[in-house]
């Protein structure tokens, strides 16, 4: 299962070796997170050749920025996935020629230093399946806006234009969808 690769065990030691510029550690990082990062990028750009380029760019960025990562407290998998998504969304924005006025900058949310103290077993299979189940509970409109936001990087204004809906309506769908996902996760995994 793809989720099995997301076990956080061993990431601390792996991060330390990456910071020492150990090439074998990069191989292990790729073997652990390469397929899920690639799958995410394919979903976003829908082209396996481009996805390979962007996956390589993802690991290059992670490799180059490891010094800023907190090996003791950091969440390596979450960081890799975030960088992967951002690379793919940046690509979509560049080919679409979307203006930066509407495309909110993502780089600040992928700084390695912010990926600290995330839940230890964040991406274990149960949690991931719970979110998937919660995602399926969203109504069609809510699911669509989350997909447009997460997998296409559209702003709410852009979504409103594409869906030919009032901006306020789209904002309501986005907020309701996110609240529903959070509530479902909190009910499934009490704090």
């Amino acid at each position: 299962m793809i989720f099995a690769a997301l076990d956080a065990e061993g990431d601390r030691e792996l991060a330390v070796r990456l910071q020492r510029r150990d090439p074998q550690a990069l191989a292990e990082l790729y073997d652990k997170y390469g397929r899920i990062a690639f799958s995410l990028i394919v979903r976003i750009v829908r082209d396996q050749g481009i996805a390979e380029d962007l996956t390589q760019e993802t690991f290059l960025r992670v490799w180059n920025r490891m010094a800023g990562f907190d090996a003791e407290r950091g969440a390596l998998g979450a960081w890799v996935l975030t960088v992967a998504r951002n690379r793919a969304i940046d690509y979509l924005r560049s080919v679409d020629g979307r203006t930066r006025q509407n495309a909110i900058e993502l780089t600040a949310t992928e700084m390695p230093s912010v990926f600290v103290d995330l839940e230890a077993n964040l991406m274990n299979s149960d949690r991931a399946r719970q979110l998937k189940a919660a995602f399926e509970k969203l109504n069609e409109k809510q699911r669509l806006v989350i997909e447009l936001a997460y997998f296409e990087g559209l702003s709410q204004t852009e979504m409103a234009e594409r869906m030919k809906q009032p901006l306020g309506t789209v904002k309501t769908w986005v907020r309701t969808a996110l609240q529903t996902l959070r509530n479902e996760l909190e009910e499934a995994v009490p704090a």
Binding site: G34, L40, T82, L131, K132
Partner: peptide, 29 residues
């Protein structure tokens, strides 16, 4: 960030080519 990262696990798995692994490992060379 946790929720966002988990959303990234939603797409179905797609197997990358073996060439991609070589390209990524070349980063460290």
């Amino acid at each position: 960030l946790e929720t966002n990262a988990i959303l990234g696990t939603l797409p179905p798995p797609v197997e990358p080519s073996k060439a991609l692994r070589r390209r990524v490992l070349a980063i460290a060379e």
